[in-house]
Amino acid sequence: MDKVHISRKIWIRLAVIVAILLVAVLMFLIGKQHTILLDNKTLEFGGETYKAFSIVEVQVDKEDQLELAARDRDKAVVTGQRHSITVLYMDANYEEIEKTWKFSVPLGEDMLLLSVPALVGGAEPAIWLTHYEPPVAAAAPVSEEVVVTEDAALLGDF
């Protein structure tokens, strides 16, 4: 049987295609945007209660610092999978404590709920970082945004 001969040219082309695909995957990984909802509510899980802070300051990566009162929720929009979160809170002795955790966001998740009390309380990551599905409510149709075009948009009418 004849041996199939693959020329150098084909090898180079295949290598280029593979390299481009790898770049595409890399871009997908580093460019994926996630919304993290930072939740300061009392959480009960497995018989354990993680009590909400009366006031807590949270910072995700180098984003703006967010101040959350009890039962508050805010959001941080981050890009990529690996992030850090810094929490500044007061303990029972009214001493300020600042702690930083590192965490990863699953690639397929667009929106996650991060429970600050559970995080500080030392719960498992699966407890303080959970998938969040935004509620879908019946709403009136949203009007389309104003179309931005090149200034001579009238050309299209000609």
Binding site: F28, K32, Q33
Partner: peptide, 12 residues
């Protein structure tokens, strides 16, 4: 749709 932003989004 995939939520890829910034320069990585443009390159992709």
């Amino acid at each position: 749709d995939w939520g890829i932003v910034g320069i990585p989004g443009m390159v992709l």
